[in-house]
């Protein structure tokens, strides 16, 4: 239970960072933290106490042992790749914003309003 709560705290830290921080780079890092929290949550749901790796080998003694769930691990791999893409996109956008506005401070990047 503590683990789940800490994972949830990590998610909240990410959201807090996105809402409160004014620096574009810090916002990108915060969105990364939020992504890690969701990945961690998936892995936590897959974990079984005393579980072993989910590969059936010849001569492996399976009596009385549980395997961890392999599917969320595959999901997390996919979601990590997606997050990599999104982060690269965000960084590219931040670079172009810096070229145009000469600042990373979001309070000064305010040409759109209304």
């Amino acid at each position: 239970m503590t683990l789940y709560l800490m994972c949830f705290a990590l998610l909240l830290i990410g959201i807090y960072g996105i809402i409160v921080k004014r620096d574009l780079v810090k916002i990108i890092i915060a969105s990364g933290i939020m992504g890690y929290a969701s990945n961690l949550l998936l892995i936590l749901f897959a974990y079984r106490k005393g579980g072993i790796y989910p590969i059936l080998e010849k001569g492996k003694d399976m009596t009385g042992r549980v395997m961890v769930d392999p599917l969320p691990q595959a999901l997390v791999l996919t979601s990590i790749v997606i997050e990599l893409g999104i982060t690269a996109m965000l960084i590219a956008l931040a670079i172009r914003i810096f070229e145009k506005y000469k600042t990373f401070d979001i309070t000064k990047i305010r040409r759109l309003k209304g």
Partner: peptide, 10 residues
Amino acid sequence: GSISSTLVLV
């Protein structure tokens, strides 16, 4: 979008 995607994943 990334906030909402994270929420979807959760």
